[in-house]
Design a protein around this nucleic acid. Structure first.
Length: 522
DNA sequence: CGGTTTTGACCTGCGC
DNA sequence: GCGCAGGTCAAAACCG
């Protein structure tokens, strides 16, 4: 019996070995993609070139090189049958000239690429500095307010510990942020630990480490309590910045997907550590912790939607501190990217309220409604809704669009690198697919008046698309319930959001074996 | 036997 | 201060 792993994976793939086969073929495809073109004529010309001591360029930039040479080669193979060696030599010379021309062209293209890259970097730097400047300005406003309180301008009482945290707590918070990987389990292993420590954590909040525990890794908060951050936000700019970083860990990414399984497969291994009945929902909420590495801070909550029990809402929090298999990277990078986007938006505002329009456009630039953003207390949350059936781009054959042929499977972002054309095609394709699947982006910003679009309920969203054929609904539901699709779609979204965010687990090696084992294990 | 799930108890924050 | 809700812990049960 599969415990904690999606049942519908095996259901969707008919058998466990079917699931393995699917993933294996995908991995094989990726490995194939890294090989040169299998064209026989291409191989022929390669041999010819090497035999004449002309080194072919291996640059990826020159996409057409192989084709042109291949054509030439096939021409030559015809000539080979009965033509003199002079013609052969002439042909070789011609090829050499052609190759040299292409090499020089390659160099030019490389220069262009480096130029564009440089421009991009410069622009990115400018953007960063602008954002930083903006943030700094807001900090000054906060500081001014804090100063007023310190000097009793408004008669307010300044909580002493907040000021102390501002100078002293920086290291503590930063340390927590940078050491998000600190071993929570180790910390919790001692018997009495949790209760004592819970109290100690609270004590730290109030006394700022006067009990001497602030330097201990034990002082690392669980990353789920909002209050510490909220309090620190009211102190100095340093503390605010630190708190913002701490908030980064608290950003949540919620994924709604139709699934009859108890949990969607995201490639990670999870251990259930709790279950609670949440108010207003007859379905219990399950709490999971990542067990792929000891002390991984990532947790997730899984709960069925109260309105539609076929919808599984999975809420992720935290960043993995260990290498992930590609299958896990897809979802992990997505949640990380979404969290980064969300918090980069929230960071630009002193009161923690994000700029929803900017964020919304950033997540999916061509859409006005694709994912739900919420900065309502206590946690900023991005919701990726993979349950909808809306289709802004009419597609007469949605099934065809969603099919996963073996010759062109979906890719996770890590595999896009070095394959720009494939990346663009896949991203564009998945972008359309994501639009098809009805990722809804609205701006629900808690109590703030920045709300521009009221997040529609699930029923409302369905009612907005009454004209869709049942087959489309069924296909979408079936596909979006496929955990692999969910993960890969999420990966594509993260890719669209921006490569910088998408692969924060850059040290993750693409261990295809672990991916296979994970999926088969799931 | 080791890992996972279950489940009741406990803690914390928040609103009243 | 009290009650509520969300979140976590850990012993016991369960499973392969």
């Amino acid at each position: 019996m599969d415990k904690g792993f999606p049942v519908n994976l095996t259901r969707n793939t008919n058998a466990d070995d079917g699931g393995d086969r699917k993933i294996t073929s995908e991995v094989d495809f990726f490995s194939e993609r890294n090989k040169p073109s299998p064209s026989a004529s291409h191989n022929n010309i390669k041999k010819e070139i090497i035999s004449t001591d002309v080194k072919p360029s291996t640059s990826n930039i020159h996409v057409n090189t192989g084709l042109q040479l291949a054509n030439t080669a096939s021409d030559q193979s015809v000539v080979d049958d009965g033509v003199s060696s002079d013609a052969k030599t002439t042909e070789l010379a011609h090829l050499q000239v052609e190759l040299q021309r292409m090499n020089s062209e390659n160099i030019k293209l490389k220069e262009m690429l480096s130029h564009v890259t440089g421009n991009y970097t410069a622009l990115q730097m400018q953007l960063m500095s602008l954002m930083q400047k903006n943030h700094h300005t807001e900090n000054e406003v906060v500081n001014a307010k804090a100063e007023e309180k310190i000097h009793g301008v408004d008669g307010g009482i300044v909580p002493r510990q907040f000021l102390e945290i501002g100078t002293n707590g920086t290291a503590e918070v930063d340390d927590r942020v940078s050491n998000s990987s600190s071993d929570e389990r180790t910390r919790s292993n001692t018997p009495q630990n949790s209760l004592i420590e819970a109290g100690a954590r609270d004590h730290i909040r109030n006394n700022n480490g006067k009990n001497g525990r602030e330097d201990s890794p034990d002082s690392e908060s669980q990353g789920w309590g909002p209050n510490k951050v909220q309090k620190i936000l009211n102190s100095s700019n340093v503390a605010e910045q630190s708190a913002t970083e701490a908030t980064m860990r608290k950003a949540r990414v919620s994924v709604r997907a139709r699934s009859e399984a108890s949990m969607i497969s995201d490639g990670c291994q999870w251990r259930k550590y709790g279950q609670k009945m949440a108010k207003g929902n007859p379905c219990p909420r399950a709490y999971y912790r990542c067990t792929m590495a000891v002390g991984c801070p990532v947790r997730k909550q899984v709960q069925r939607c109260a309105e539609d029990k076929t919808i599984l809402v999975t809420t992720y929090e935290g960043t993995h501190n260990h290498p992930l298999p590609p299958a896990a990277m897809a979802m992990a990078s997505t949640t990380s990217a979404a969290a980064s986007m969300l918090l980069s938006g929230s960071m630009s505002s002193a009161d923690g309220i994000m700029t929803p329009n900017l964020l919304a456009r950033a997540i999916l630039p061509c859409s006005t409604s694709m994912a739900t953003l919420s900065a309502s207390a206590p946690f900023p949350t991005v919701t990726l809704d993979l349950t909808q059936n809306s289709n802004p781009i009419p597609n007469p054959n949605p099934l065809q669009q969603f099919q996963r042929p073996h010759h062109a499977p979906f890719q996770v972002p890590g595999f896009f690198q070095g394959q720009p054309q494939n990346f663009q095609q896949a991203a564009a394709s998945l972008y359309n697919q994501s639009k098809f699947s009805g990722l809804q982006l609205s701006q629900e910003v808690g109590s703030s008046h920045l709300t521009t679009t009221q997040a529609p309920t699930h029923q409302q969203q369905q009612q907005q698309q009454p004209s869709l054929a049942d087959s489309v609904s069924a296909a979408t539901a079936a596909i979006t319930s496929d955990p692999n699709f969910t993960a890969v779609l999420a990966a594509a979204i993260s890719s669209i959001i921006g490569g910088g965010h998408a692969n924060n687990n850059s040290n993750n090696n693409n261990n295809s074996r672990s991916a296979v084992s994970n999926f088969s294990g799931n």
